[in-house]
Write a protein that binds this DNA or RNA. Structure first.
Lengths: 225, 225
DNA sequence: ACCTGAACACCGTTCAAGT
DNA sequence: ACCTGAACACCGTTCAAGT
């Protein structure tokens, strides 16, 4: 216990003076993200955060209204860090595919974020900029506003759901559960066990995105001009 | 504070004798679900649960290993309550559509569950039965094991992601954020505002499912026999 | 076997006080 | 203006004790 707290403190404050001058909202959020990444969402605690910052818990309240505000700030921080639309795929299908892949990557590298997504807000955040950029790309590809909105939402939902299903269980646990299920009661599960596990582990993510893109592109004559 | 605790106690124990005899794992989980539904995930507390059961917190530990076990139990409980595959659609597309609709319904009626999904396990749970049943239906429709697994995973991911995006923000908040976004910076968002909000509010869920089903059914010659 | 009481090591947050 | 100390009302969980 003592040891864990100590090494964590070392890790999060590495290279900084133990007594810093500023303590801004920005450094609070960055430290909070580091803690959440390392110990998970419930490992992030105002008191723990203060300790990592070398400060008293109450010092944090001078810069952030409360813990909820910090958690909301983390979502913004990650969205801002991953410039998911900043790449140079030429055709719009590849562009969408890469964008979703980058989103997925960001969510996986910061696993605590996905459970905070429900606290996020669009107004005045980087998320709105990402949304605008994706709609712009889709309009350029010939989608109507309605078609573009549908595509954005479906891909977003699929990506988030994919990550949720993926980090549900420890890496190889799920694979074992499927392959070792009693064949008499679960014949289909056993037969599809390895391919099921592949999907849950995210190995077929890109194929899923492409199928959804194609499915939505065809659906309804009104979605594309 | 006193008042809230009192009315909650009344609500959760309504119709039961204040001093019950058994206190089984089953009644603990049912009460826990009621609390989680009413106050959200962080409103569910061992001490609060004990209070609602008219018992000391430690009495609960005789029946459940710890809070984590209770939370995992809640996912099973909801999956078991909603018999999502029990309906009589004739063709497989409609069948999938209705199944996803029922899953979505269950998740929305118990909003705390979605954030507990990552704690769930397949082995020995009702979730495995649902999975088996869906794969069975897809095999019957001519899908290969691989194709069926892909379809299950994609629909599951989409459904979960859809609900996650939906309950992110309070009902009308998101709609306002989109329609009132500054037009100069976010022209596409403003233009698609109402249709975007419709999607986030889940009004186009069924259309999304159908498009994904069609997209995956076409994808790859190997997925169907 | 089943439940309770007291205790421990934590939480988020407020309020008054220091510099 | 920015930070601290002490306090309050909570947590999950363990351990020994009651019946």
């Amino acid at each position: 216990m003592e040891y864990t707290a100590y090494t964590s403190l070392m890790r999060y404050t590495a290279g900084k003076a133990r007594r810093r001058k500023p303590l801004s909202r920005a450094v609070i959020l960055r430290t909070a993200l580091a803690i959440a990444d390392a110990e998970g969402r419930e490992g992030l605690t105002v008191r723990r955060l203060a300790q990592a910052l070398g400060v008293t818990p109450m010092a944090i309240y001078r810069h952030c209204r409360n813990k909820d505000a910090i958690e909301r700030g983390l979502v913004d921080l990650v969205v801002g860090d991953y410039d998911v639309t900043n790449h140079d795929e030429r055709n719009w299908r590849d562009w969408l595919c890469t964008t979703c892949g980058l989103m997925r990557r960001g969510l996986i590298e910061h696993p605590a974020i996905i459970s905070l997504l429900s606290k996020a807000t669009y107004a005045g955040s980087d998320a709105m900029t990402v949304l605008e950029r994706i709609l712009h790309e889709l309009r350029g590809a010939g989608f109507t506003p309605r078609g573009a909105a549908g595509m954005f939402h479906a891909l977003m939902a699929y990506t988030i759901g994919s990550v949720t299903l993926g980090d549900s269980n420890a890496p190889r646990t799920l694979r074992r559960e499927f392959t070792r299920a009693p064949r008499a009661r679960y014949p289909q599960v056993v037969e599809a066990a390895t391919t099921l596990a592949d999907h849950f582990e995210g190995r077929c993510f890109e194929a899923g995105v492409r199928a959804i893109v194609d499915g939505l592109a065809e659906a309804g004559a009104a979605t594309r001009s």
